[in-house]
Amino acid sequence: MDVVKMIAAGSCLIIGMVFFLLCTFGVNRFKRSLNRIHAAAVGDTLGLLFTMAGLIIWRGFSFTSLKLLAVVVFFWLASPVAAHMLARLEVETHEDLGEIEVDRR
């Protein structure tokens, strides 16, 4: 039983780390800020979800794991808002965005 828990939690953690690696790789690879926001959101959502899922599986279901779940829920609410603010900042402070078409108010 412990071994099964260990395998499940470890694989979840490693998948989370892979998502964080993809997120860092994407942010360093893309050239435009609006593309970079897309790459950064991968780590905010899936990376954190898989990391916390692994920790919750390993810790067992208790009040601490509920708090870890609360962190994920808060991040899933807050991350799109932050990304939207960043995108608006980028669009409003740059007059020419190249081939990207933007609907300005």
Partner: peptide, 11 residues
């Protein structure tokens, strides 16, 4: 740009 910096700080 400032946006790139903010994105990486968020990350």
């Amino acid at each position: 740009g400032i946006t790139d910096r903010l994105i990486s700080v968020n990350m």
